[in-house]
């Protein structure tokens, strides 16, 4: 019994000194995070509260829900629904394009991994505005595509200033954000897991449906978030490729701020934020349901 006691007190002491060590270590690490915390407070948290404040108050600083209810204005409502429609469409197209691409890329040998990532992010080396303006030139009535078509006496395309042009711009700009997370998840799936499925009798289609697809869902979900959110809020792509005719909710908000209507702009931003939070909540719920527990 005595021996037992001694050993048990020892067992208690050792972890105690261990945790002491850990605390001092985490303290050091904490220091390193202070600049980011300051940055976050100054440029994310405070502006967010300012938007909430402006959104929920009028010119005189009194509480009101008027700014938020402005979303019911037919013009705003139409802009919101169009933005939802176009961003959902572009997210879907991105997913359809990105998944097979990521799947093919993930099957290449490990050596060329960094090269593949490079190819995916290469378009991002050029300025986002520049690329979008380039598309404007390509799609214009007298742009490259139409000049080419005219040369062969083919009917010309009128894509510019239509919702299709905006979707094209969104897909082009945000596709890498869909490919990368899916690719990242796919290359992390152990080859032996796939071998095990094959070994247990699954053909390649069953292996994909029952193993690869479910295991890659976290990547798909973060890809969807990373494409859907910027697509929903964009006003640059719609301005450049949609002309003045097509107004998305992003354009409406931008106009309000330009005109100095900070309260209206903030109110509409809050509505948009609710839609984004809602979509993320749906996604994370689906993520948990399908996974059982988190892989990431």
């Amino acid at each position: 019994m005595r021996i037992k006691n001694i050993s048990s007190t020892r067992a208690v002491k050792v972890p105690a000194s261990d945790t002491g060590l850990q605390i001092s270590k985490t303290n050091k690490v904490k220091w390193l995070s202070y600049p980011y915390i300051l940055w976050m407070a100054g440029f994310i948290i405070i502006p967010l509260f300012m938007i909430i404040f402006y959104g929920l108050s009028n010119d005189e600083g009194r509480f009101t829900l008027e700014n938020i209810s402005l979303i019911l204005n037919p013009v705003h409502k139409k802009a919101l629904f169009l933005a939802l429609e176009l961003s959902l469409t572009s997210t879907l197209i991105c997913l359809i394009l990105a998944y097979p691409l990521a799947l093919i890329l993930s099957k290449f040998k490990m050596k060329s991994n960094s090269f593949i990532v490079l190819i995916i992010i290469l378009p991002m080396w050029m300025n986002f505005l520049l690329r979008t303006i380039a598309w404007q030139n390509i799609l214009e009535r007298t742009g490259i595509i139409n000049t080419f078509l005219q040369f062969f006496h083919l009917p010309t395309l009128n894509i510019i200033n239509t919702p299709s042009a905006i979707v094209l711009g969104m897909v082009y700009n945000f596709l890498p954000f869909m490919v990368l997370p899916i690719y990242n998840v796919l290359i992390k799936i152990d080859k032996d897991i796939i071998n095990a499925a094959r070994d247990l009798g699954a053909n390649s289609r069953q292996t994909f449906g029952k193993i690869i697809l479910p295991l890659s869902l976290p990547g798909v979900i973060s890809g969807i978030t990373m494409v859907f959110v910027p697509s929903l809020t964009t006003f640059v792509i719609s301005t450049i490729l949609g002309g003045s005719k097509i107004v998305l909710i992003g354009n409406v908000i931008e106009q309000q701020f330009r005109l100095g209507n900070w309260n209206t702009g903030s109110g509409l931003s809050l509505v948009l934020m609710i839609f984004i939070l809602l979509s993320m909540a749906i996604l994370s719920k689906y993520d948990k349901e399908s996974e059982g527990n988190n892989i990431w």
Partner: peptide, 18 residues
């Protein structure tokens, strides 16, 4: 492999974690 009448136990188990 799926058409062979044998099964494998892998080194790192290779269980389906989902």
């Amino acid at each position: 492999p799926n058409e062979r009448h044998l099964n494998t136990v892998f080194q790192k188990y290779a269980l389906f974690n989902h």
